[in-house]
Amino acid sequence: MKSMFLFALSCTVATPLWAKPVVGAPAPAFSVVDSHGRTHTLADYKGRTVVLEWSNPDCPFVRKHYGAGNLQKQQADAAAQGVVWLTINSGAPGKQGHFDAAGANAWIARVGGKANAYLLDPDGRMGHAYDAKTTPHLYVIDGHGVLRYMGGIDSIQSADADDVAKATQYVPLALAELAAGKPVSVPTSEPYGCSVKYGAP
């Protein structure tokens, strides 16, 4: 019986369909066009820390953090430290929050977004590569291309803007620790929010 069980286990410890991102390992490569038609790849930013933020303008959790000015502030603070911030919309055409380039640019102007670029990923390729599940869902990649943080935006899982000030904001924490040459104290947290509105596979 023991050997049967071991056999069963060894059969199921298989390589997943696609490699999922792992903190401490190289982050998945990507090549995605932004709302101004420019292509961004991870390799473009070698030597710089990169933040990835999955977004859907109509998701109440995204609205919570933009409505409170939390994401704009984090983006501006990151820019001041030379960190690259990329916002990604993996919503499929016809799904809630899907943007074309003009829609994305109008939204950025309206909310005062301070990200370096807004990447349009309607086929969900980049989203699936990162296994992005929620909006928001945040990732921090160091200058060597290694994933250092993935997870939720902060420590209080709620839709209430009142909670923003009480919560620990994980990306600024990770950026400060990376800048100080320290290990990231919270390398993962469970993401929370709306599901990413992927198209049919």
Binding site: C59, A159, C194, S195, K197
Partner: peptide, 12 residues
């Protein structure tokens, strides 16, 4: 009571 209601989109 606080809840999150979702279909595909969500409304808290």
């Amino acid at each position: 009571v606080k809840w999150l209601a979702c279909r595909e989109e969500c409304i808290p």
